[in-house]
Write a protein that binds this DNA or RNA. Sequence first.
DNA 1: CAAATAGTGTCTGTCAGACATTATTGG
DNA 2: CCAATAATGTCTGACAGACACTATTTG
Lengths: 254, 254
Amino acid sequence: MSTPAPEGYDPHAYAPFAVTVDLAVFTVREARLHVLLVERGQEPFRGRWALPGGFLLPRESAEDAARRELAEETGLGQDTVGALHLEQLRTYTAPDRDPRMRVVSVAYAALLPDLPEPRGGGDAASARWWDTGAAGPLAFDHDRILADAHDRIGAKLEYSCLATAFCPAEFTLGELQQVYETVWGVELDRPNFRRKVLNAPGFVQAVEGPPRRTGGRGKPAALYRAGDATALHPPLLRPPGPDAPHSAPEGRER
Amino acid sequence: MSTPAPEGYDPHAYAPFAVTVDLAVFTVREARLHVLLVERGQEPFRGRWALPGGFLLPRESAEDAARRELAEETGLGQDTVGALHLEQLRTYTAPDRDPRMRVVSVAYAALLPDLPEPRGGGDAASARWWDTGAAGPLAFDHDRILADAHDRIGAKLEYSCLATAFCPAEFTLGELQQVYETVWGVELDRPNFRRKVLNAPGFVQAVEGPPRRTGGRGKPAALYRAGDATALHPPLLRPPGPDAPHSAPEGRER
DNA sequence: CAAATAGTGTCTGTCAGACATTATTGG
DNA sequence: CCAATAATGTCTGACAGACACTATTTG
């Protein structure tokens, strides 16, 4: 846009593109990472599952479009969607990523606590949660977007307080640990996890009145709320995998 | 793009957008972080400085467009530009960010070793390096893009081997340390810096033949090349600032 | 009581920052 | 010799992982 354009140029002289948003909406259900998908009703990829999303309106930012689409496809209230953390992932611009026309897509990730199935109605009729491991080949380049999103979320858990976004307003440290274990696909030592979470200033704050809640049998756990910090100091680093010496994951836009 | 579109819809029914790339090209000169800017030759913002960039061609990806524009504006060879690390930052979509028309811009960051001034010629005639601290108000929302880019680069230095991209093919550890100090705006302890860099597998590799090079007077330093790793284990963490207890920097898309 | 989950305490090796010291060059 | 930069070594405190142990609930 800073390249000198011809004097008195006509906007239509530049190639028009369609711009969409695609949403990778995650939740943790039963110790598995799930993603919200919609079934396509028409070609191309009719019958295949895809990330929810849609076209930007003429005077709408991508983030506004993402919230609007999310509300439409999940049936969540505008207030919930309005307060939600939306993380811009990256933008996909391969010329042939949509066979119909030139489409540039801005991808976002969103994290939700475990919710009931999206209520049928409007666009949400065909939406459901899928285990990320079981989600088959998706439409367009959405497999790639989903993989990028998973990587990014996993990386962000290390140095941000994002994990609480997967939890309800009040949660136990066991539930928070479950989020980390599910997204990272590892098991963590409970005492050490507690120590790190409680030592990170502003990550969580204890809920005063000693109400407690149980997750079945066993000792009831203390409840916490998300703290006021957004970044995590010190970071809660992922245990070094038994694998590669030095690889280069995506993600990390810290 | 997954929102059900009307059956047999016409692409022109959807709002057309212009898509551009904007480039934050950084280098370290004389212990200061510099960015490549171009002076605008026409309205809007005539005479103001802006990030280099330009419109996507009809069948070109954003990264291809970024490399093409970079070659045009800096006069760098296609081979250099082709091997360069380009980091997609984020996409800016505010509806009024360009007063002329609806423009969505994909921003990239690039890191270069200290180079001579861009050769005049073609679009590069008005390009020059600016100290990031002295760069005045830029055109459009480029101040914001530049600030985001600086944050991101700073964060990436912590957990990636990106810093070597600021250095020539063979460099000393003092030069590498200078990169960190300049981007982060802090001073680092040299012995500790050496230890961490040399302990990070694949970050740098010593150049065999004991050639040495000097940066003035003082003991000549051993030379190193970039290693084969792209991620840094363990990360080289920024010293905790004397400031805020917990803030939320941009950056970090790790 | 057994099983399951929550929570506390401790030990030990590693690594961080801080800093002293030596080495090698130019002026 | 002095200044400047490079390189090595050492000390100490903080923190990580590992793990033993206690507490509280359900069946």
